[in-house]
């Protein structure tokens, strides 16, 4: 028991790192759902592209022998910004090519298109990396100082990179909240989510707002990709699937279409996962180990959704005339 309590702060920190990552990815699902009522199943690959852009920059700098010379506080914002830009524009492009032409089609059709794009992007990244590096499992080079651990208490320490993940996630979530709630652009996004036809009567170019939504959602995913690479090092074109599914779950948990909901959902899922990974074997006397963490976390999720089918913060779309 004492041991379990002593462990708690560490489990909390790990859960937060995971949770913020899910939250960032979940925003892409939930924002797109908000304006189109459509699940962008290619979002997991948009996230992965960010991770690959990050690793390519680092490997490129390493290859040129200059990586050690660049201070990490310069490098990190550049990596995140590059990942955001690449993923954001990829998301916009995917919408233009694969979703917009199907706007009037039955709902299942763009969904299939999204799954197709997801496979296509996985194999495109695999193909390009295989030609370019002769490998598609890539490892983030370790960066000076990021692996250092800061002692916060007797049984609690946190690595610098975890702090980076948490810090930059908070920064982006705050920025996005401000953008959506306090700016004209954000008002237009909310208006399109509530009633696209009436928004167009206000002078909003709905297609541009939809592109913008993909850009922002994709950029958040790209940032998450870079942070994922920094935190967990090993990436592949198929890395996106599990975090993608979990982030999607987080979005549903929080109330799909609801931006604060995606943030809350991501954090709840990350914490559940982290707590079950650490405590499952303690609680069950060793019958279930950490490998059952997903089953445990998702069981709780199902329970929450049975009690609150619209998610923790409620669904905010779907009142169309």
């Amino acid at each position: 028991m004492e041991f379990a309590l002593a462990l708690a702060p560490q489990v909390l920190v790990d859960g937060l790192v995971l949770g913020f990552m899910y939250a960032l990815i979940a925003l892409g699902y939930t924002m797109v759902y908000g304006v189109l009522q459509f699940i962008n199943f290619a979002h997991s690959e948009i996230f992965v592209l960010g991770a690959f852009v990050g690793v390519e920059i680092l490997l490129g700098l390493q290859g040129a022998g200059v990586l050690a010379g660049i201070p990490v506080w310069v490098l990190l914002p550049v990596l995140v910004a590059a990942g955001m830009a690449a993923s954001g524009f990829l998301a916009v492009g995917v919408e233009r090519v694969a979703y917009r032409p199907l706007r009037g089609a039955p709902r299942l059709v763009p969904l299939l298109s999204a799954i197709g794009i997801s496979f296509f992007l996985q194999d495109a990244i695999r193909f390009l990396e295989s030609i370019w590096r002769n490998a598609f499992y890539l490892t983030y080079p370790s960066l000076e100082g990021l692996d250092r651990r800061i002692q916060l208490g007797p049984a609690l320490d946190i690595s610098v990179k975890s702090l980076v993940v948490i810090g930059s996630s908070i920064l982006m979530l705050v920025g996005l909240t401000f953008l959506v709630n306090k700016t004209k652009m954000g008002r237009a996004i909310r208006a399109v989510a509530q009633d696209p036809e009436t928004a167009s009567l206000m002078g909003v170019d709905v297609n541009r707002v939809i592109s913008l939504t993909f850009l922002i959602g994709g950029a958040m995913g790209g940032a998450a990709g870079v942070l994922f690479g920094i935190q967990y090092s090993l990436i592949s074109p198929y890395t996106g699937f599990i975090p993608g599914i979990k982030a999607f779950t987080a979005a549903v948990l929080g109330g799909i279409g609801n931006i604060p909901g995606a943030m809350v959902g991501g954090l709840v899922l990350g914490l559940l996962e982290s707590f079950s990974a650490s405590y499952l074997s303690l609680l069950t006397g060793g019958a279930f180990g950490a490998e059952y963490k997903d089953i445990f976390a998702f069981s709780i999720l199902i329970l929450i959704l049975i009690l609150r089918p619209k998610g923790l913060l409620g669904e905010v779309v779907g009142e169309k005339a």
Partner: peptide, 22 residues
């Protein structure tokens, strides 16, 4: 529009600001 079609989840002020969007 017919049926008012106001933005239900925005405040009155935000609705008016949407009107001035252009």
């Amino acid at each position: 529009p017919e049926g008012r079609r106001i933005f239900n989840r925005m405040t009155v002020r935000e609705n008016l600001e949407m009107g001035a969007y252009t």
